[in-house]
Design a protein around this nucleic acid. Structure first.
Length: 168
DNA sequence: GCCAACGTTGGC
DNA sequence: GCCAACGTTGGC
């Protein structure tokens, strides 16, 4: 046998990934995204979520748009990552609730991707429905105490959930 | 409105 | 570096 030079990281980096992103519909809903076409995903102030945006998200990745703090909570539609991470402008804005006095333009702390509307599900997939579906039992969003606002989603889970959402 | 789970802060 | 106190998230 010749040299074994296979590097699994390379394949991982080049393949597109799937995400779940939470938004409170009272603040910004899938209908708002539909109207605006795109939005900067501002206000993420959690390092793990930030690192997903800066290190792993790629333009073209598909996103489950999740309504949190809603009645009921659940996945309302699909979006896609349309621009790679840039410094989150709200960290520099003293009037913003997301202002961070430790951040400077030279050394920004927080980043945001741009997200583009893809579709609103004809069938809203509620958290309860996700919980009851054995096929989706590994999804992070139903794990106890999982509060992360940006979560990776497995391809098989994404595809199954998309199928549920597209039923009319 | 309650509260469990989690993340961050800051004293030591 | 530990960990108690505090703040936030988000389902219910």
């Amino acid at each position: 046998m010749g040299a074994n030079t296979e590097n699994k990281k390379t394949t991982l980096n080049s393949s597109s990934q799937y995400w779940l992103m939470k938004s409170e519909p009272d603040v910004f809903s899938i209908q708002d995204l539909k109207k605006n076409k795109t939005t900067l995903w501002e206000g993420v102030r959690n390092y793990q979520a930030r690192n997903f945006m800066t290190k792993e998200m790629q333009v073209g990745d598909l996103v489950l748009f999740y309504h949190s703090n809603a009645t009921p909570p659940g996945v309302a539609g699909l979006a896609t990552v349309s621009k790679a991470a840039i410094p989150d402008p709200t960290q520099f804005d003293k009037k913003s609730e997301y202002f961070d006095p430790k951040a400077t333009k030279e050394k920004p702390i927080w980043f945001c991707v741009e997200v583009k509307f893809v579709s609103e599900f004809p069938h809203f997939v509620s958290l309860e429905e996700i919980r009851k579906d054995a096929k989706l039992s590994e999804m992070m969003v139903i794990q106890k105490g999982s509060r992360l606002s940006i979560q990776p989603v497995k391809a098989k889970d994404f595809q199954h959930l998309q199928k549920l959402g597209q039923q009319s």
